[in-house]
Amino acid sequence: MLVDDAVALVPSIPGRRALLGLVGAPAAGKSTLARRLVAGVNERLGADTAAYVPMDGFHLSNAQLDRLGLRDRKGAPETFDVDGYVQLLRRLRSERERPVYAPDFDRRLDEPVAAGLVVPAGTGLVVTEGNYLADDGPGWGHVRDLLDELWYVDAPRRLRERRLLRRHVRGGRTESEARAFITASERPNALRVERGRAHCTRIVVPGQPDENGTWEV
């Protein structure tokens, strides 16, 4: 089971924290899997043994995207603060004496939220996830260097795009606007993500996926 493998990553050496990365195309089910892994590890080893820190907290704000002319490319690699994300990963690996605060992403606001998450000092495993953890673009290669393992989360394109359509409509787009955004942005981003599969240590495929994502962990 996947939880067994996540538990095995929890280090026994004092002062060391392990980082597990999950990468995959938009709406592949990365966040669902990450949360279930964290819950499973904590159930086995005790509360706060594992924590969840998504890459999405490093989305550039909508104001910055407007300034850069990238609002219609939101979700592409250049619309994230990769350097900030790398610095957080470095701190998570080395800082065990004090809590580490991390940004979160609010889908209702469609904006990052500063210090929305906290990793307690005693946490031994951080599960992080995002689209570009295996990317070769500027800055992204440093992410792989900081991860103990990197799992590629695979899911059929048709299922992913149904989830994306529902997500964007719930976020305020009309159905036609959502479909246009998926075609213009989400689909090219997914193709770019898929090119990073070779950098991953494992391919994870959900069993019998449904609209909400079903994981046997």
Rank of each mutant, 00 (worst) to 15 (best):
A8D: 09
A8T: 07
S12I: 11
I13S: 11
I13R: 11
R17I: 08
R17K: 03
R17N: 02
L19I: 15
L22F: 10
A25L: 09
A25N: 15
P26K: 01
A28I: 08
S31K: 01
L33R: 13
G40V: 05
A47P: 01
A47V: 14
D48Q: 15
T49M: 01
Y52I: 08
P54K: 02
M55S: 02
F58E: 02
F58T: 04
S61G: 10
L65W: 00
D66Y: 12
D66A: 15
L68S: 01
L70C: 05
R71F: 03
A76K: 00
V82C: 00
D83C: 00
V86W: 04
L88N: 07
R90I: 00
L92M: 06
L92P: 03
S94T: 14
E97L: 08
R98F: 03
R98A: 13
V100Q: 10
A102L: 06
A102H: 02
D104K: 00
L109T: 08
L109I: 06
E111T: 07
V113L: 10
G116W: 09
L117T: 04
V118P: 11
G130C: 09
Y132C: 01
A134Q: 04
A134D: 11
D135Y: 12
D136W: 00
G137T: 06
P138R: 02
P138E: 11
G141H: 04
V143Q: 03
R144F: 09
D148V: 11
E149V: 10
W151H: 04
Y152K: 06
D154K: 03
A155G: 10
L159V: 15
L159N: 10
E161D: 07
L165T: 04
R167D: 03
V169I: 07
G171Q: 11
R173K: 08
T174N: 07
S176K: 13
I182G: 05
A184I: 03
S185F: 08
R187Q: 12
R187T: 15
A190N: 07
A190H: 14
R195T: 15
H199K: 10
T201S: 14
P206E: 05
G207F: 05
G207Y: 06
Q208E: 15
P209R: 03
D210F: 07
D210H: 13
E211Y: 01
E216V: 12
